[in-house]
Simulated assay, not measured.
Amino acid sequence: MQSLIDAPIKQGTKVFVRCDIDVPIENNVIRETYRLDNLLPTLKFIIEKGGIPLIAGHIGKPEGVFKEELSTKHLIPYFNEKIGESRYEILENLRFDSREEQNDTNFAKELASKADIYVNESFATSHREHTSIVGITRYLPSYVGFRFQKEIETLNKVTTNPDKPLIVIIGGIKLESKLPVIDKFIQKADYVLLNSILSANWSKEIPQNLVLSDNSSVESKDIDTKTIEKFKQIINSAKTILWAGPLGMYEKEEYITGTKEIANETVKLTQEKGVFSVIGGGDTIAAVDKLGILNKFSFVSTGGGAMLQYLAEDTLPGIKALES
């Protein structure tokens, strides 16, 4: 992959930047800006070189129809404040056009015609074979953004040469999507810890380093006190912690305890013992942001499904497109 640092950007160069702008919006107000904040170094670099970034991406799942509440116009005040009015252009939600999710050739050509250079700065969407991730790269010189590069470098550190013991914590509710990464880390990690719902759905043999919740149940809304203490004891031995997925139904205050306790313990280990902690996924970010500790981990990956797929397969469709 070619890095943005090497892109031939000069005065007036139009740069199509596929951005991760899928942020929560309520009553036309952005609730949490973490993904947007991580775009700024790439966008500012392009502007400093004299280029004009065309910010492109999606918000939500509009399924090919216009939905006012998912319009990118709600992001304009943020970008005006952060990079300056009239220093960029922003395209409407790409998923308002059904061709975006079909990796459509004609749509790829339409998007490519708007710019001179393409930059992928959306790691979180790069497990999708969509037009703005894959198809467009056939028609423009293509580069990887700074944040995307950092995502790969950090996750490679966890998979190829982590400081051990390596403890992996997996939450969420869908075992099927997590299974490839669980299987991989059972081979690599010292311990893999599963929340209650994933534990209840685990039907294979239980290897020695796989730790299930004590209150395993498909109806569980959180891990119990006994599991919290068990998980804390295990992660206290860690030098590297990888965490994907909240441990309970964090949206409700009564079910955020497990996530809160393990998050606070991980932060404590990070700050006091120098443990390298990596967390990722939209729900994980939302949960720890709710707790007010998002910036206290070593690294927060913007990818959920993309992070899990990259950890399992060491590549993504978006990466392959940039390499071809």
Rank of each mutant, 00 (worst) to 15 (best):
L39D: 04
L40H: 02
T42A: 12
I46K: 05
I46R: 05
I46V: 13
E48T: 08
E48I: 06
K49Q: 08
G50N: 02
G50R: 00
G51A: 02
G51Q: 01
I52W: 10
P53A: 09
L54N: 02
L54M: 06
I55C: 06
A56Q: 03
H58Y: 14
I59F: 10
K61P: 13
K61V: 12
V65P: 00
V65E: 08
K67I: 15
E69D: 15
L70I: 15
L70F: 15
T72K: 00
T72S: 09
K73D: 08
H74Y: 08
H74D: 11
I76V: 06
I76R: 05
P77H: 00
P77D: 01
P77F: 01
Y78W: 06
F79P: 05
N80I: 00
N80D: 15
K82W: 07
I83E: 12
S86E: 15
S86C: 11
R87G: 11
Y88Q: 12
Y88L: 13
E89G: 12
E89S: 14
I90P: 00
L91A: 06
L91T: 05
E92H: 07
E92M: 07
E92L: 11
E92G: 13
L94Q: 09
L94C: 03
R95G: 12
R95E: 11
R95D: 08
F96Q: 07
F96N: 07
R99Y: 01
R99W: 03
N103V: 10
N103D: 14
T105E: 15
T105Q: 13
N106A: 09
F107L: 03
K109A: 08
E110M: 10
E110G: 07
E110V: 08
A112I: 01
A112Q: 04
A112E: 02
S113A: 09
K114N: 08
K114C: 01
A115Q: 11
A115R: 06
A115F: 11
A115D: 04
D116T: 02
D116L: 11
D116R: 06
D116F: 11
Y118N: 02
N120T: 07
N120F: 02
E121Q: 05
E121R: 06
E121I: 09
S122T: 12
